[in-house]
Amino acid sequence: MPEDRHHVGLVLKFEESENSILGYHHDKRYLNGVFLNIEAIRADAEDKIQKYDIRPPNARLRTANFSGGNQQKIVLAREMERGPDVLIIGQPTRGVDVGAIEFIHKRIIEMRDQGKAVLLVSVELDEIRALSDRILVMFAGRIVGERDPDATEGELGLLMAGVEGRKEAAE
């Protein structure tokens, strides 16, 4: 799940339904030979709109006209409904409203509970501490430490600044 939904995750000028197959448009379900199966694509999009409570519930609306949170839910629905065993998520709640943040967090936890591997990349310490089972901190391109989610922000902050990391590496 890409962190930049505006330029990478979505094509803002597309209809919602067109974005809900981005990257999976080779799937036979969405095609009739070389032609797009428009009915199947729209039905599939509407199904996702229901499940992920995307508002306004209109698969034909231009994606640019959805709010940030709902745009993110379009991406989330697209990637999660494929049932991946491993999901790498970048900045899932950047620029997203509070209601949608809660919704997205719940979905990520559900993935975990189904026994899927989730790698969450985020700059939000609160988010990381709330969702993670293990926290790996990177500094200057290297993993400098591993902590439990109950580690304090100060501890993580020192690791992020490279202070603790150097000590650990020296030991």
Binding site: G9, V11, F14, E18, L22, H25
Partner: peptide, 20 residues
């Protein structure tokens, strides 16, 4: 109405999304 057209439009609107 075709897959090729879909790919064309994706690239036309957003080359980075097309790469993704």
């Amino acid at each position: 109405r075709t897959k090729l057209g879909y790919e064309m439009r994706t690239m036309g609107h957003s080359p980075s999304a097309a790469r993704y």
